[in-house]
Amino acid sequence: MAEPNQTGSLQVRNVSKLFGTFKAVNDISLDIRKGEFLTLLGPSGSGKTTLLMMIAGFLDISEGDIALDEASIANVPAEKRNFGMVFQGYALFPHMTVRDNIGYALSVRKRPAAEITARVDEMLELVQLQEFADRKPAQLSGGQQQRVALARALCFAPPVLLLDEPLGALDKKLRVEVQEQLKDIHRRVGTTFIYVTHDQEEALSMSDRIVIMRDGAIEQVGTPKELYERPINQFTAGFLGKSNFIQHNGKTFALRPEKIDLRASASHPDARLSGTVRSVTYFGSMQRVIVDASDGTEIEVDIDVWRNSETLREGDAVDLLWTDDAAVELQMG
């Protein structure tokens, strides 16, 4: 497959982007390691695309600097940066065949025809599209177009690949399938992937590290496990997975719904809270119980149906239990 790159670490230093007086990206610093799968995760409008466009060179940086392997690229034009990019909506060239789309980067670099053919064949195999080489993009399904876009962006072995919501146009089932393929390709080519999404499940399942963004700034950076287990504030805890927020001694704690134990019998000695069941929703693999706690808050509990066969009903009195390490203390904000 693609020869492993010697380069591919990226340094983002105090980067801001101003549109008029509006700060779309606000003082972001980030060290992206060579070969890592880094995801920019945040709600729509949080500045993910803007940051990616500055890395790609399509937007000027208002403040700060971006460097590839410690050498600034702020003044290098987009066409000289050698970064691969998978665009939102793919942006395949409609008048070219799949083969010509994939080979475009090599052909504009005036590489010999034999080399281009060989390399495109290799990429077609990587994305499993050998039979579709002579089709036009309009004759392909969404998933196939997505793979052509990926092959086109990887064909010239770029040190960094930028992906802007590449699975946004696919349906849920296909999306999971393509996620696996994408992870597999990342493992095989060893390129640094910078992946933009607003889908938290996608981010959790694919990334080495996730950057959580909000209003143009970074909220928290970490591995999926770190972020899920140790969110530092309400925003991260609520955006990545679900969370209950418990007030105790003037502090706020995040408590995941699946980390709460629910007992039907009232006045259990270790009970942290008690309450009554407001609703029970069955999801197959688990059931979600909403409890009106006695202190007036509303607590969400996910319980394993398989291990807890006793049926809960609305209005049942219940005790809520959890261990000390289940609740994570949060900073303000």
Partner: peptide, 15 residues
Amino acid sequence: FDPKLEQASKNLGAS
């Protein structure tokens, strides 16, 4: 014309 096509072309190294 989709301006992303122009960006894609430049991103792939075309003048």
